[in-house]
Design a protein around this nucleic acid. Structure first.
Lengths: 209, 209
DNA sequence: TAGATTGTTAATCGATTAACAATC
DNA sequence: TAGATTGTTAATCGATTAACAATC
């Protein structure tokens, strides 16, 4: 549906713009130039203008950008003006942490349910959200208009659960399992591979002494 | 100390190579060509050879790469042959989850202690690791040869705690707070901004319908 | 040796930065 | 109007891919 597709590099920077604009707004800054913003963020003004102009002209020559307006527009681009129903699979510590994150850090992501295959966890609650058995997942997904599923389970189970999710119509998976899910191309998978992130830190520690 | 510095794009791919090689090894695959590996991983063989040759020639013409040897070498590059003492700041759900991850998923990262400013948490234990008060952090860091600190605290406190850590000699921070830490250039910060990752998923969901 | 596959150079592609005309 | 700053085109830089000679 897009005229020309936006590069992954640009999309990755959008949430950071959104964060800086939110901060500026809470500092009651009304307008900002790409030059000022570039100094705050440590990127080039050129990059900011190029990035934004992928989506339209949000600024005004001689004035800069209106902070509130630009923040709202980037929010719309990121889909933050809509509510996204979520489900978390895996009721361990990571699942618990995600339940908190998704619900509080950015509104618009609503955790509808948590699922776990461990019968001992089923029936308990995490912050008012009850943990359900994997057996009722399929029905739940269909009845609750779930858009995003966070996968916080061991890698051994992740591939088969992901396939099942795809078959249930889920097209967005936030994947915390250390495995590549490899779903059809109309599915979106956002990987958060914590151990790989830690290894990058260890690489730098290792190579700079 | 490096002759020419390795690009961030290459470093980011190393842990994934390591993961695939570990999988191959547990499948008892002895050797693999860049072409075979490229098919498995969904990248070009050219990229694999280019990436590896940043660090030396690990293969052999006409044969390919020895899986065990290459895995070991990449492990060394990533510093996985060494033990890294870690400390986690923040004993909430995320801190708990990280304690598990770091200790179990990849050996070599040893969680020595967890710190929290909440007096109610101090004294309790997470998987044999006791939660300590922030007051004893500085002494603990010095006495325990801590190399990496995971910051799993609210963004409001993160900047000042990070500065303190830097002053205590910590040069590697695994940052989960939604803020840019902005430390001197000899410090390594690896950011894991979960809400920004979630926003990228929401962007794609939003823009493709 | 012949075949396979690397290591590496050269070509291409894409992303970032610089420059500047348009315009508020 | 003059000054400021965008939107956008052009130049540069870096990363990826292709090609192939070296060599096991």
């Amino acid at each position: 549906m897009e005229e020309k597709s936006i590069s992954a590099a640009v999309i990755k920077r959008l949430p950071r713009y959104y964060r800086y604009l939110s901060d500026l707004q809470s500092e009651n800054v009304e307008r900002i130039s790409s030059d000022e913003l570039s100094k705050r963020m440590g990127v080039t003004a050129s990059q900011i203008r190029q990035d934004l102009n992928n989506f339209g002209g949000f600024g005004q020559q001689g004035y800069g950008y209106n902070v509130e307006y630009l923040r709202t527009e980037i929010g719309k681009i990121l889909g933050l003006d809509k509510v996204h129903n979520m489900v978390i699979i895996g009721g361990g510590n990571l699942g618990r942490a995600l339940a908190g994150y998704a619900n509080f850090e950015s509104r618009g992501f609503v955790v509808k349910g948590i699922f776990d295959s461990n019968p001992e966890l089923v029936g308990t609650k995490i912050r008012d959200i009850k943990i359900m058995s994997m057996g009722v997942l399929e029905t739940f997904l269909k009845e609750n208009d779930v858009a995003i599923v966070a996968l916080a389970i061991p890698r051994g189970d992740a591939v088969s659960v992901a396939k099942k999710l795809y078959d249930c119509g889920i097209r967005a998976i936030w994947n915390f399992a250390h495995v590549d899910l490899d779903l059809p191309s109309d599915a979106f998978v956002e990987n958060v591979h914590l151990s790989e992130s830690l290894m990058q830190l260890s690489y730098r520690l290792n190579s700079h002494k």
